[in-house]
């Protein structure tokens, strides 16, 4: 498969969020503002990139029988590192992402890419795959975060959009709003992008 194909597949055709519906927990939980979404997306992408690189390099020395525990240890190591870095340098972001930082470990997207791609492909391919999937994930998160922040707080990346008269739709910032907004966005994605590509 060509590298450009690997890359764009993660971004659009097999978009981890809108098409595969992977890693739903952080998608719903931390997207109340665009900034939080971006932070979560970047954190997940770095873990994905790290784990894809290591697993692709080690793919010949890991016996098939114990590959899942090995993958999990590699992923958990990167997650813990990212968590420490966030806590040290971005304490506010770390506080708002909360428990979902350690939970990147069980994001099915990362283990899924390790199992179905990195453990079978070369380093270059795995890196491209990680970047494509990571950007697809981040992009979807940020879109959802922007929609929810606009309606829920009347702001975008913390900049106020509307005048004093705007009454924020608090529902969008709360759990039900996450489900509703993602459901509607997914339907819109199906309608526009996916239908066109087919």
């Amino acid at each position: 498969m060509k590298l450009t194909n690997i890359f764009s597949r993660g971004l659009v055709m097999d978009n981890p969020v809108f098409v595969q519906a992977l890693g739903m927990c952080p998608i719903l939980a931390v997207t109340n503002t665009a900034f939080n979404s971006l932070g979560m997306g970047m954190a997940t992408t770095s873990v994905l990139l790290g784990s894809n690189i290591v697993i692709s390099l080690l793919r010949k020395s890991i016996p098939a029988k114990i590959r899942i525990p090995c993958f999990i240890v590699v992923i958990a190591t990167f997650v813990t590192m990212v968590g420490m870095i966030l806590e040290a340098y971005f304490p506010d972001l770390n506080q708002s992402l909360g428990i979902f930082v350690p939970l990147i470990v069980v994001n099915c997207l990362i283990l899924g890419r390790a199992e179905s791609f990195a453990s079978k492909n070369s380093l270059v391919g795995s890196v491209t795959d990680a970047i494509g999937m990571g950007l697809g994930f981040t992009g979807a998160l940020v879109v959802l975060g922007m929609v929810r922040e606009t309606f829920g707080f009347g702001s975008l990346f913390d900049m106020q959009l509307f005048g004093e008269a705007f009454e924020p739709m608090a529902l969008m910032a709360m759990p039900p709003g996450a489900f509703l907004a993602l459901g509607i966005l997914m339907a819109a994605f199906n309608k526009i992008v996916y239908a066109k590509l087919k």
Binding site: L180, G183, M186
Partner: peptide, 13 residues
């Protein structure tokens, strides 16, 4: 998935 998510949203409400 879309309708499932919207249903879940109503339950969450």
């Amino acid at each position: 998935f879309p309708i499932a998510l919207i249903t879940a949203g109503l339950m969450s409400l």
